[in-house]
């Protein structure tokens, strides 16, 4: 049987690629579709750096055989910013120093996005559970949890004020001057 053409809707765009049997969604994203945000940390589904959303649910993309999700919607970090502007989760991570080496960050943000879409007002315990599959070696997690709760608040405030809160343009600095390129 061999390779087959697989079609997915990735970040709202229909994408097609040829997949050899045994190709994981992670491999397809990185090697066939040029989307490098999702990382290959372990290949065992135990580190969370490959977390993306499939049909709005967070999954370990290294464990998904692409043929099994033919036609599904896939969302990666590359699709999070809106029109070049960081969303509330991304901005909160920047402002809250919730990233150091950055290797866990894509997976963390996707787990956070999935949580906030399901629950706009999560408790600290909800956030902790949502990221329980995402390993971070640098931060000790406190700043990440705080950033996700902060993002939830920003998004709720924006929604209740009837419009989008001013977003931080991609590539600019945060107030503390964390934006060295």
């Amino acid at each position: 049987m061999g390779s087959q053409i697989v079609s997915l809707v990735v970040n709202d765009q229909r994408r097609e690629f040829i997949a050899r049997p045994g190709t994981s969604l992670l491999s397809a994203l990185r090697e066939s579709l040029g989307l490098m945000a999702a990382k290959r940390g372990c290949g065992q589904g135990t580190c969370g750096t490959c977390t993306v959303l499939v049909d709005d649910r967070p999954v370990m993309s290294c464990l998904v055989a692409v043929e099994t999700i033919e036609g599904a919607s896939v969302r990666t970090l590359e699709g999070v910013a809106r029109g070049g502007e960081l969303d509330e989760v991304q901005s909160a991570f920047v402002d809250g120093f919730a990233t150091q080496c950055g290797f866990c960050t894509a997976g963390m943000i996707m787990s956070a996005e999935a949580l906030l879409e399901r629950d706009p007002d999560p408790s600290r315990e909800d956030v902790v559970e949502a990221i329980s599959g995402n390993v971070c070696r640098c931060t000790g997690y406190a700043s990440i949890v705080a950033a996700i709760l902060d993002a939830a608040r920003r998004r709720r405030d924006a929604a209740s004020s009837g419009g989008d809160a001013p977003a931080v343009p991609a590539g600019s600095e945060a107030a503390d001057g964390a934006g060295v390129r």
């Binding site: 049997p21 589904g45 464990l63 055989a65």
Partner: peptide, 27 residues
């Protein structure tokens, strides 16, 4: 036979699965 892939795909990724076809029950 493969359910969610959490066991089988981990083996595929580590190269420890002998030559075989995978049968997903997802659909």
């Amino acid at each position: 036979v493969m359910g969610g892939g959490t066991i089988v795909m981990a083996q595929v990724n580590s190269g420890s699965l002998a030559e075989t076809e995978l049968i997903s029950l997802r659909k």
